[in-house]
Design a binder for these strands. Structure first.
Length: 283
DNA sequence: CGTTACCCCTGGAGGC
DNA sequence: TGCCTCCAGGGGTAAC
């Protein structure tokens, strides 16, 4: 279940292997995931070198906007990928057997990148360089602040939440406000900060906003660090990016004892999502 | 503006 | 063993 840390770990794991590599072929094996996969992707990418991979929220942008080495007729662009809920990216030996749900293959000179996505909630799109800049893409244009950037502070959160009745947990998870915080890390961060998930956002005091921002950043950074330590495994093993099992303190533990006070954890639906928390430790 | 429902899809879990 | 139902997840979109 990729949230921001999993996407960032994928980026960090792939970049050293793919940067400056040239695409030799692209194959998609399904017409669409959450949205249609561009049919002409092979024409767009073939012969181009990958300059960089950048992340925006949970989206990855593969930068092929530099001048092409072989494809001379157009000006390159960006490959936009989103892993949805069940997506993962793996580097495999070219020609090795494709697994069920390997929907997209991009052959580079030395390796093959495969997008595996059983539930097909992912996104694959092509953004031509001659179009508007990638941040204007409809899926990126309304993305909120990056939780790991310097501007994401307690003061920022305090200002943004004033007069807002919405519960703090769905507020945190709304990508138009803050990108990359999914259900797991929202639940964990609220527990660490001692804030109940159903609290109206506008009710949070300044100190609570500071604590929550700190908890979100710490949780995400710890998860990236945990995943980063297994980047080598990620690239070479069959297990994929599965080893950042950050020990969850509340997520998925409804009814089990709170690790801080021992009381059974409560479960409540907020914004359609299961929200596990401790009635005793979170207010 | 906020909230809710729905949709994309598969597979794992649990009930019978 | 199998069949059914429920649920999870991200997130865009439409409806209220």
């Amino acid at each position: 279940m990729p949230e921001l840390p999993e996407v960032e770990v994928s980026r960090l794991g792939l970049l050293p292997h793919l940067q400056h590599q040239r695409v030799s072929a692209v194959r998609s094996h399904v017409p669409q995931l959450r949205r249609p996969i561009p049919a002409a992707l092979d024409d767009c990418l073939r012969g181009r070198r990958l300059a960089d991979i950048v992340r925006r929220g949970k989206y990855l942008l593969f930068d092929f906007s530099a001048e092409a080495t072989e494809a001379a007729d157009s000006t390159g662009g960006w490959l936009l990928l989103h892993l949805g809920m069940s997506g993962s990216l793996r580097l495999v030996t070219p020609g090795s057997a494709r697994r069920r749900h390997d929907h997209l293959e991009i052959d580079f000179d030395q390796t093959c990148l495969r997008l595996h996505d059983p539930r097909r909630f992912g996104v694959v799109d092509w953004i031509p360089a001659q179009a508007a800049p990638p941040e204007r893409h409809p899926l990126l244009a309304h993305q909120g602040i990056e939780p790991l950037c310097a501007g994401f502070t307690g003061d920022w959160l305090y200002a943004q939440t004033r007069e807002r009745q919405i519960a703090i947990k769905p507020f945190l998870m709304d990508s138009r406000r803050i990108v990359g915080v999914g259900n797991i890390y929202a639940a964990e961060s609220l527990f660490i900060a001692g804030i109940a998930p159903q609290r109206p956002a506008g009710q949070l005091r300044r100190a609570e906003c500071t604590a929550l921002v700190s908890a979100v950043r710490h949780t995400l950074e710890a998860a990236i660090a945990a995943g980063g330590s297994s980047v080598r495994d990620y690239v070479h093993s069959d297990g994929g990016a599965g080893s950042f099992q950050l020990r969850c303190q509340v997520y998925g533990r409804a009814g089990l004892p709170c690790l801080r006070c021992g009381q059974p954890l409560a479960d409540q639906r907020l914004g359609g999502r299961a929200s596990c928390y401790c009635r005793h430790c979170q207010h």
